[in-house]
């Protein structure tokens, strides 16, 4: 049994302008100690899927219209809010993109870290503060003891993200969801923060869902990759297979748009066109208006997630996955 298994998840947003179908049948799973990277352009439903797993969707306007989220065998969507709350933070935790805005500006970092122990473990404030210092040490924030009473704005961007990581790690959850944890950081500290996250994940044998739109970050850390487009998974594969040979034209496009050292000076490739309007997703394959390979069938028949390998570890939602793979 995987640690987390999302099955056929559907999420809609009901807004004044209409219904945005943000997640349309996403399935993925993560084992303990495993890292799943979720890739895709912005707006493809990566964060919404994560929010549905954490139970922090904005409802309304959001609405889960179908699917299951099995965590350690329990369907989280069937839990009462109070039981769900006890899972959040304690058994699964989330790291957000922008640590500055994601931390409370008027509470000290020690308070915000310690709060985890006060609320979930019933610790006294004093013990919780000691725990906070311990956590800050663990994520290698220098002079933790002196800085525990400081406020988020007094830390650098990299240090703030370490505090977010510490907060997520606080109760040693089984699963961590990191939603673009390094996107808001300086390039120089991105690698350090990523390394720290990977290291802690190994140490505690946690499942990690790493959301990013940066394929470059993924190669060293992830075990498998799910590529999302318009609220669906279009390709799913072990990490090395995808880099060697993508089985979906969209993945191909993403790979080609990574800047490479040997390409200096040349213009960077970009997938032409824009992601679809989620209130009017094109019929057939959602990618067809932008796909260099599109045929008539792509405009009428929605491709299922075909098995590329026998065991189903590798899948592609493309009518022409064979050709795509062959030409790679």
């Amino acid at each position: 049994m995987p640690l987390l298994e999302v099955r056929d998840l559907h999420v809609e947003f009901h807004t004044r302008d209409g219904v945005a179908k943000a997640v349309n049948g996403v399935s993925y799973s993560v084992d303990a100690g495993e890292t799943l990277a979720v890739l895709g352009e912005s707006g493809s439903g990566k964060s919404v899927t994560a929010q549905a797993i954490m139970g922090i969707l904005d409802i309304p306007p959001g609405k889960i219209t179908g699917g299951e989220i099995l965590f350690q065998g329990r369907d989280l969507l069937k839990l009462k809010e109070d039981e769900r709350r006890k899972v959040r933070g304690a058994e699964m935790a989330m790291i957000f993109q922008d640590a500055l805005s994601s931390l409370n500006p008027v509470l000290s970092v020690g308070d915000q870290l310690g709060e985890m122990f006060v609320v979930h473990r019933g610790m006294s404030k004093k013990d919780a503060k000691a725990k906070a210092v311990e956590l800050m040490d663990r994520v290698r924030i220098p002079a933790a003891k002196e800085r525990v009473g400081q406020y988020p704005h007094q830390f650098s961007g990299g240090m703030r993200q370490r505090i977010m990581i510490a907060m997520a790690m606080a109760l040693e959850p089984a699963l961590i969801i990191a939603d673009e944890p390094t996107t808001a950081l300086d390039v120089t500290v991105q690698a350090q923060v990523m390394d720290l996250l990977a290291e802690l994940q190994q140490e505690f044998h946690m499942g990690l869902i790493l959301i990013t739109h940066d394929l470059g970050v993924v190669a060293d850390v992830a075990d498998k990759i799910a590529v999302m487009y318009a609220g669906r998974i279009v390709e799913h594969a072990p990490v090395h297979d995808i880099y060697k040979a993508p089985a979906h034209p969209y993945t191909r496009g993403l790979l080609d748009s990574i800047p490479r050292l040997d390409q200096k000076g040349e213009e960077l490739y970009a997938i032409k066109g824009l992601p679809p309007n989620l209130m009017a997703i094109p019929p057939g394959c959602a990618f067809n208006p932008r796909c260099p390979r599109a045929q008539d069938i792509c405009r009428t028949d929605e491709p299922p997630l075909f098995r590329v390998t026998e065991d189903g570890a590798r899948r592609s939602a493309c009518h022409f996955w064979r050709e795509t793979l062959r030409d790679a």
């Binding site: 954490m54 922090i56 709350r85 006890k86 899972v87 959040r88 933070g89 304690a90 935790a93 989330m94 957000f96 922008d98 805005s101 994601s102 931390l103 409370n104 500006p105 709060e115 985890m116 609320v119 979930h120 907060m167």
Partner: peptide
């Protein structure tokens, strides 16, 4: 965002 964090922390 910080309020979303508070929810994600599982606070009552």
């Amino acid at each position: 965002d910080y309020l979303r964090t508070a929810v994600a922390k599982g606070l009552p």
